[in-house]
């Protein structure tokens, strides 16, 4: 059950993809509330619509119908540029494949979202350093992604997600490419962010062990919530 006022409200949300001549319903009339500070895990088989739901909540996809209100803002009503700004200011992303920029160092990767803010270089440096310290990588700042292990890369990705201090952090199978030890480290960081920093974390996972780190788990099947 939600423990505080909802930060995310999903109402009658439907997403239909067109594949050639066929309409495929990825999400069907989803209703969901996520409270601030919650660590919600989305589970379900492949093709169940969990990633699509995550993308819509994070503002990188749009619903076919229904509303997705995040921090009292209907993000479906924003245009492309507004949505880009909104994502930069309000959402941190963690991907399964880390998605670090290979030609940039760990520091520069984490700094990327801050380049779109008005912060001075000095303030950016301070925030990036803090974020990398939080994930235990302050000694790897100058390393390129290829010089890091998978677990370290994912921790850099988490630092990048944190650096703008967003209220919402979305993670799409963040441990899918990691060994169990690194996976545990990453999940522990996400849990701490939810528990200690009151960040709202929404994580898609197939792994019940990973889901156990969350405060609530919901299941999707064929585009519908099953619990």
């Amino acid at each position: 059950m939600p423990v505080a006022a909802p930060i995310v409200q999903v109402r009658e949300l439907t997403k239909v993809f067109r594949q050639g001549e066929i309409n495929v319903t990825a999400l069907h009339r989803i209703n969901l509330e996520i409270a601030a500070g919650e660590f919600l895990t989305l589970m379900g088989p492949s093709g169940s619509g969990k990633s699509t739901l995550l993308h819509i909540i994070a503002g990188i996809d749009r619903p076919t119908s229904g509303d997705c209100i995040v921090q009292e803002r209907n993000i479906g009503a924003l245009n492309e540029s507004e949505l880009a700004d909104w994502r930069n200011q309000n959402v941190g992303f963690v991907f399964q494949t880390f998605n670090l920029i290979p030609v940039l160092s760990a520091f520069e990767n984490v700094e990327l979202p801050l380049l779109l803010t008005q912060l001075s270089a000095r303030d950016r440096r301070r925030q990036v350093t803090t974020a990398l310290e939080l994930v235990g990588l302050s000694d790897r700042m100058k390393h390129l992604p290829r010089q890091l292990s998978g677990g370290q890369e994912q921790r850099v990705a988490i630092a990048r997600a944190l650096v703008t201090d967003p209220q919402l952090i979305v993670a799409d199978e963040p441990t899918g490419n990691l060994d169990s030890h690194s996976a545990a480290d990453v999940l522990d960081i996400l849990r701490r962010l939810s528990r200690d920093a009151r960040k709202t974390v929404i994580m898609v996972t197939h792994d019940p062990k990973a889901a156990a780190y969350g405060t609530r788990s919901i299941h999707l099947e064929k585009g519908e919530l099953t619990n």
Binding site: I60, E80, A84, N88, P113
Partner: peptide
């Protein structure tokens, strides 16, 4: 392509 997608997700405009 993926790098471009990542930059767009992070808030960089078209």
């Amino acid at each position: 392509t993926r790098e471009i997608g990542t930059l767009r997700v992070l808030g960089f405009r078209r």
